[in-house]
Design a protein around this nucleic acid. Structure first.
Lengths: 312, 312
DNA sequence: GATGCTTACGATACCCGTAAAGATA
DNA sequence: TATCTTTACGGGTATCGTAAGCATC
């Protein structure tokens, strides 16, 4: 058994059991990949993959266990390298942050500025992506830190910390019927929203899951006329009069959104918690730990390290 | 980087930084071992070992981290093999149990009998050793399960479960002054023991640490005239009249120790807890899990697996 | 027919061991 | 001097890639 075989295993799973793609991913030939698998299976005396003829379809039961252990082993090998790069220059390196539009646009700028100030030599890469993509980036190690409201909490491979809590709000054009109602001091009701064309986030983004669940629980079928990936787009179409918007209230800015009103909806939709996640068992560079601590106030080095080391 | 290099690293630490011994341990040549280290250090660009001239003295700071990650990686590689052997024949294999005389002789026989009954095809190896040796066997993976009162609890590499609780007792020849006193209903005092020649366990065995601490706390210097590794030897010399014995009370048998009396000492010496320990992060064969469950009543598969997977 | 996996074969590089040299106690 | 580590060199093997063959879709 050797490390290359384990890498092939890992990449085979990650690349959907297509050995040609695996060969590209690890920079090698199909034949080498194929042989690596064969030899490992022969040595262990167990089939790792389910095959249909010559095609690989998935993992056998034993294969699933084997791959999970292989990934841990590779993670530790990777950590050995990280131990070294930590020493070389603790304040330089690269930090990849995967996050959504909402976070990138509204909650992270200040933190990023503080971080760059403190670690000017760290190359900070901000990768904006959809929640499932974000989870994928963190899982494969392409990203060091992920921040999102959806997709992260359920994954046992991640260690999650509550980043911040926020509520949805309703944005309407100035003078809209609902704005007038709110101005009178009348509370907004879910039923009010049900009667309006709604513009909000795409499924799986920024609390959309929770929005849908709330409507469903109330027995209301909202008329979603448009789904966007970010609040800026939503606000633009609300301004055009296409409907009312449901967005994260942090995405409303009194200054720049002068033609829109933000109505409080904290009593209609439950609180949302955006989480910061790191890959479990992965050694973080010192500056990455600092970044996490900038996000999660009062998190000690010890507590962080312990959380990362813990098993799900 | 390859697995062999990591193995060399591990064995180098285990064999006291003597590369010649490492070569024997991994079945190879000194030169190969030396080169493996050199190449790994070159690749990483970090010195792993502290050298004085050509001699290896210990680990550098970075080296210590590297070795700990290397051990985890190797552990996972090992677990891959264990996944396989688990499947092949779940009810056969080998189980190495490291324990002390006291446990082997007095608490384990029934459990072992029950286990052999259930898993007749498992080769059960019982390795009797001193507590530090037991810890070593478990740490290196030579033993799967360790049971002892000392040496195990403090090690973060082990997961410990309380096996059973017991007290020390005092054995004296029939008709001994202290036996007479006890027969009158008078309580035994530490001071009584201080006046007698004492025969008990060797330092580091079967609660001896606790015995010494108790005497020290009372300001008494016991006259230990003989130290033995097990209660059978102690009892033999007590029978010869060399002194009184302090042993685990479970080691006294009314039937076979007819010429001796056991005096209760549960109020003099604190309770002892014998623990069962397994190596953290090491995949156990199904039958090994069953053995643990025979020892620790009411421990579910889940709870056990979770404990083993957890990080210290 | 296009894509994907396996086998065969040849070249390369890696790894290991023997042996000699250098260093340490 | 005896023990221990490093370096040098040679042999064997494992690994990898090209190319061909074959199965699946």
């Amino acid at each position: 058994m050797n490390l290359q075989q384990l890498r092939v295993l890992r990449e085979t799973v990650r690349n959907g059991f297509n050995l040609s793609e695996v060969a590209l991913a690890i920079v090698g030939s199909q034949s080498g990949v194929s042989k690596a698998i064969k030899e490992l299976e022969d040595e262990l005396g167990v089939k790792i993959f389910v095959r249909k003829g010559k095609r690989l379809l998935g993992l056998t039961e034993a294969g699933a266990s084997i791959v999970s252990h292989a990934e841990k082993a590779l993670q530790e090998v990777d950590n050995i390298r990280r131990v070294v790069s930590r020493l070389e220059d603790a304040d330089s390196g690269r930090l990849v942050l995967a996050t959504t539009h909402t976070q990138a646009r509204y909650s992270l700028p200040e933190i990023v500025r503080a971080f760059r100030n403190r670690f000017p030599k760290v190359q900070l890469a901000l990768r904006q992506a959809s929640p499932p993509e974000i989870a994928g980036l963190l899982e494969t190690g392409e990203a060091d830190i992920a921040i999102a409201t959806e997709s992260l909490k359920a994954n046992a491979l991640f260690v999650c910390f509550p980043f911040f809590k926020w509520y949805h709000g309703v944005v309407v054009p100035k003078g809209h019927r609902l704005a007038v109602k709110a101005a009178k001091g009348e509370h907004l009701a879910l039923a009010d929203l049900g009667q309006e064309p709604i513009i909000t986030y795409h499924a799986g983004f920024t609390g959309r899951t929770m929005i849908d669940a709330t409507f469903a629980r109330a027995g209301i079928t909202p008329q979603v006329v448009m789904e966007a990936l970010d609040a800026d787009v939503i606000k633009a179409y609300v301004a055009l009069g296409m409907g009312i918007g449901i967005i994260a209230s942090v995405a409303y800015d009194e200054e720049s959104d002068r033609d829109l009103s933000l109505l409080d909806a904290s009593e209609l939709f439950a609180e949302n918690t955006t989480v910061l996640a790191v890959r479990r068992g992965r050694l973080l560079p010192g500056y990455a730990m600092r970044f996490v601590q900038l996000c999660i106030r009062g998190l000690s080095d010890q507590a962080l390290q312990r959380a990362v080391q813990s098993e799900g």
